[in-house]
């Protein structure tokens, strides 16, 4: 519990998004697959990129750490209840070992339009980039 604020250390910095990854970059491929999958509501589009343990948070849905198999079915149920109207990953960043992307997605559930934000984080497993964190909020 901090008592008073110490304005020491580095000055305020601003976070800006970095440029998208080149199209041929394996990370870009994964992000593109996720974007397309969320846009069309098709889990199979990106299910092969799901890591053995995926941390997921879904709006009005499940939240927790699931295996790739579980994540597949959980997402399938989510997309069945939430019809996608569009999705776009627009911001990219992260480190060499843990890139991420954020964006927006629009769904319709029970006739009500919902605007959500997406967060996708990857990590390296062997020679592949796998999805370890997926949030649709």
């Amino acid at each position: 519990m901090a008592g008073s604020l110490v304005f020491g250390g580095p000055a305020i910095v601003q976070l800006t998004a970095q440029a998208p990854f080149p199209k041929e970059d394996p990370r870009a491929v994964v992000f593109a697959d996720v974007e397309k999958g969320v846009m069309t509501g098709t889990v199979a589009q990106f299910s092969r990129h799901l890591a053995s343990q995926v941390y997921m948070q879904l709006r009005e849905g499940e939240s927790g750490t699931y295996s790739a198999n579980q994540a597949y079915y959980v997402l399938q149920i989510f997309f069945r209840a939430h019809k996608s109207l569009g999705a776009k990953l627009s911001s990219f960043g992260g480190s060499e070992t843990n890139p991420y992307a954020t964006g927006r997605a629009t769904f319709v559930a029970n006739g009500i339009r919902q605007e959500t934000q997406m967060y996708v984080s990857l990590s390296r497993h062997g020679d592949r980039w796998m999805i370890t964190h997926l949030s649709v909020y």
Binding site: S95, T97, N98, Y100, Y119, S121, T132, H133
Partner: peptide
């Protein structure tokens, strides 16, 4: 893996 999640991106 969760611990190593990029902090800046997540908190943004």
């Amino acid at each position: 893996v969760e611990f190593l999640r990029p902090v800046d991106g997540w908190l943004k």
